[in-house]
Amino acid sequence: MAMNGTITTWFKDKGFGFIKDENGDNRYFHVIKVANPDLIKKDAAVTFEPTTNNKGLSAYAVKVVPL
């Protein structure tokens, strides 16, 4: 089920960042999981599918909501 969130941290040079989800949890995401990576920036609103990996909470099918 899709969730909403906000990008809180973005490491462009490393290709990953973190999203604060609607429950207040931080989720890892990688640029290859983003549909529109050219719009990635700190504080951008996103929708995504929540999941977990071996390191904890993460996100896939991430879409940055255009302003």
Rank of each mutant, 00 (worst) to 15 (best):
M1Y: 12
M1T: 15
M1W: 09
A2N: 10
A2Y: 13
A2R: 15
M3P: 03
N4S: 14
N4K: 14
N4R: 15
N4T: 13
N4G: 09
N4P: 05
G5C: 03
G5T: 00
G5D: 01
T6E: 04
T6I: 14
T6L: 08
T6K: 10
I7H: 00
I7V: 09
I7C: 02
T8E: 07
T8F: 07
T8C: 09
T8G: 05
T9N: 11
T9S: 14
T9W: 13
W10M: 02
W10E: 01
W10G: 00
W10D: 00
W10V: 04
F11D: 07
K12M: 07
K12C: 08
K12P: 15
K12I: 08
K12A: 13
D13P: 06
D13F: 09
D13Y: 09
D13L: 11
D13E: 12
K14L: 10
K14M: 09
G15I: 02
G15M: 07
G15D: 05
G15R: 07
G15C: 07
F16D: 02
G17W: 02
G17T: 02
G17E: 00
G17A: 01
G17R: 00
G17I: 02
F18K: 03
F18W: 10
F18Q: 03
F18G: 02
I19D: 01
I19H: 01
I19K: 00
I19R: 00
K20W: 07
D21K: 01
D21E: 00
D21A: 04
D21H: 02
E22G: 05
E22Y: 06
E22K: 06
N23Y: 10
N23R: 10
G24E: 05
G24D: 05
G24I: 01
G24T: 03
D25W: 06
N26E: 11
N26V: 15
N26T: 14
N26D: 11
R27G: 00
R27F: 07
R27L: 03
R27C: 02
R27S: 00
Y28N: 03
Y28H: 07
Y28D: 01
Y28F: 14
F29K: 02
F29A: 00
F29W: 02
F29I: 03
H30T: 12
H30Y: 06
H30N: 13
V31R: 13
V31I: 13
V31Q: 09
V31P: 03
V31W: 10
I32H: 15
I32T: 15
I32R: 15
I32W: 13
K33W: 15
K33R: 14
K33H: 15
V34H: 03
V34Y: 03
V34R: 03
V34N: 04
V34G: 04
V34I: 04
A35T: 14
A35W: 13
A35S: 12
A35H: 11
A35P: 04
A35G: 08
A35L: 15
N36F: 06
N36C: 07
N36A: 04
N36D: 07
N36T: 08
N36G: 03
P37C: 05
P37T: 04
P37E: 04
D38F: 09
D38M: 09
D38N: 11
D38L: 11
L39T: 06
L39H: 10
L39C: 12
L39W: 10
L39S: 09
L39M: 13
I40P: 01
I40F: 04
I40E: 00
I40G: 01
I40R: 00
I40H: 02
K41W: 07
K41L: 07
K42T: 09
K42P: 08
K42E: 08
K42I: 14
D43N: 13
D43Y: 14
D43E: 08
D43G: 15
A44N: 04
A44K: 04
A44F: 05
A44Q: 06
A45I: 11
A45M: 12
A45C: 11
A45N: 12
A45H: 14
A45V: 12
A45S: 11
V46E: 01
V46I: 05
V46D: 02
V46C: 09
F48K: 00
F48L: 03
E49C: 14
E49G: 06
E49L: 15
E49V: 15
E49P: 00
E49N: 14
P50L: 04
P50Y: 04
P50M: 04
T51V: 14
T51H: 14
T51Y: 14
T51C: 13
T52R: 14
T52Q: 14
T52L: 10
N53L: 08
N53V: 07
N53A: 08
N53S: 11
N54A: 14
N54K: 14
N54V: 11
N54L: 13
N54R: 12
K55A: 09
K55S: 09
K55H: 13
K55G: 10
G56K: 09
G56Q: 08
G56A: 06
L57V: 03
L57W: 03
L57Q: 06
L57G: 04
S58T: 11
S58P: 02
S58C: 11
S58M: 09
S58W: 07
A59F: 02
A59E: 01
A59T: 07
A59N: 01
A59K: 01
A59Y: 02
Y60G: 12
Y60T: 15
Y60W: 11
A61R: 12
A61S: 12
A61M: 11
A61P: 03
V62A: 01
V62N: 01
V62F: 02
K63L: 11
K63S: 09
K63E: 10
K63C: 11
V64C: 05
V64M: 04
V64S: 02
V64L: 05
V65W: 12
V65H: 12
V65E: 09
V65L: 13
V65P: 03
P66F: 13
P66S: 12
P66R: 11
L67I: 12
L67D: 14
